[in-house]
């Protein structure tokens, strides 16, 4: 069944394929502008050399239409559905379309088939498997569109979690933030300068989730609407860049291209915190699909809407 108010499943697959290709090849402008600004202030010769090489690499990726990094990360999707949006075949059809798009993009872009079974290490060679690609949902009132965001985050280094306590206060937050940057910044294992996302509060899994989303779904230059959180974002960004460590762990001042903090109400006795680094190949791409087939591409996921961060009962 299809109709004027339905978003076609075939359109979702085509858009998801295109997003997957875009994310792998084209660095988002906010991120490359952020790195170019760091090139202006970085004084260390080695660190400058690394940043210049990365800028040249992004240009080569776009010109040649090849992936910017061969570790093409773990493709996943964030779906924000307007409350009035209707998908042809329902959300099961949407999920099938996303899985098909990832399998096709893996051989056609090509992407590296990174996804393996955790124990047998068996590889389907298509980046599809158990809970892969991950699909997360969010909803938006009074809207009939579907926002589709893909993120391909690299996997191994740059993320950590810690249970702090209320008495640890801002010192505890700053200290753990520095710990993560220092431990994963050595030799550049976090592939910095990175967008650093911090999750504060919630239950433990929420702290991990919102921290990762803060890194991957907010753009360079964005600030949390809560002025106190925004001030802490700016303070931590400056703190990270004052460690004396830069790209590849060389001496430098280019560590944090931006810092984003997301919070969730948490247990009165605790202050869980997560830190995530979205690397020099910050792969994200976004499209808005509307009934009737209209598609608009962009790079800002606009995931954290005021509805998404709502605080009250209604």
């Amino acid at each position: 069944m299809s109709g004027p108010r339905l978003i076609a499943a075939s359109a979702i697959e085509d858009v998801a394929f295109e997003l997957t290709r875009q994310a792998a090849i084209v660095i988002p402008k906010d991120y490359s502008d952020g790195i170019k600004a760091m090139l202006e202030t970085e004084e260390n010769e080695l660190s400058k050399f690394v940043l210049k090489a990365m800028v040249e690499n992004w240009e080569a990726a776009e010109t040649d239409r090849r992936a910017m990094c061969a570790d093409t990360g773990l493709p996943r999707f964030y779906v924000k559905a307007g409350n009035e949006a209707m998908v042809e075949g329902g959300f099961v059809a949407l999920e099938k379309a996303l899985r098909r798009a990832v399998a096709r993009a893996t051989s056609e872009v090509p992407l590296r088939p990174n996804r393996v079974h955790p124990l047998s290490r068996a590889d389907h060679n298509n980046n599809v498997g158990i809970r892969a690609p991950e699909i997360d949902y969010s909803f938006e009132p009074e809207a009939d569109w579907l926002d589709l965001t893909t993120v391909h985050k690299g996997g191994l280094f740059g993320t950590d979690y810690r249970m702090l306590f209320p008495g640890d206060g801002l010192d505890g937050i700053k200290k753990f933030f520095l710990d993560v940057l220092v431990q994963f910044g050595r030799r550049g294992l976090a592939c910095q300068p990175a967008i650093i996302g911090i999750g504060l509060g919630g239950s433990k899994d929420t702290a991990m989730t919102i921290g990762k989303q803060a890194a991957c779904l907010r753009i360079v230059g964005d600030r949390n609407p809560d002025p106190k959180i925004a001030a802490l974002e700016a303070e931590l960004k400056a703190l990270g860049n004052s460690i004396g460590m830069g790209p590849m762990g060389f001496v430098g001042t280019s560590m944090v291209v931006d810092c984003h903090i997301e919070v969730a109400h948490t247990h009165t006795g605790g202050m869980p915190m997560s830190v995530h680094a979205f690397c020099l190949s910050s792969r994200r791409a976004v499209a808005r699909l509307r009934a009737g087939g209209k598609v608009e591409y962009r790079t800002d996921p606009a995931w954290f809407t005021s509805y998404h961060r709502r605080e009250g009962v209604e």
Partner: peptide, 14 residues
């Protein structure tokens, strides 16, 4: 030798 960045995947692909 170490790669730079990491990684300059497109430059190395070229």
């Amino acid at each position: 030798l170490t790669t730079v960045g990491y990684g300059t995947g497109a430059l190395l692909g070229r």
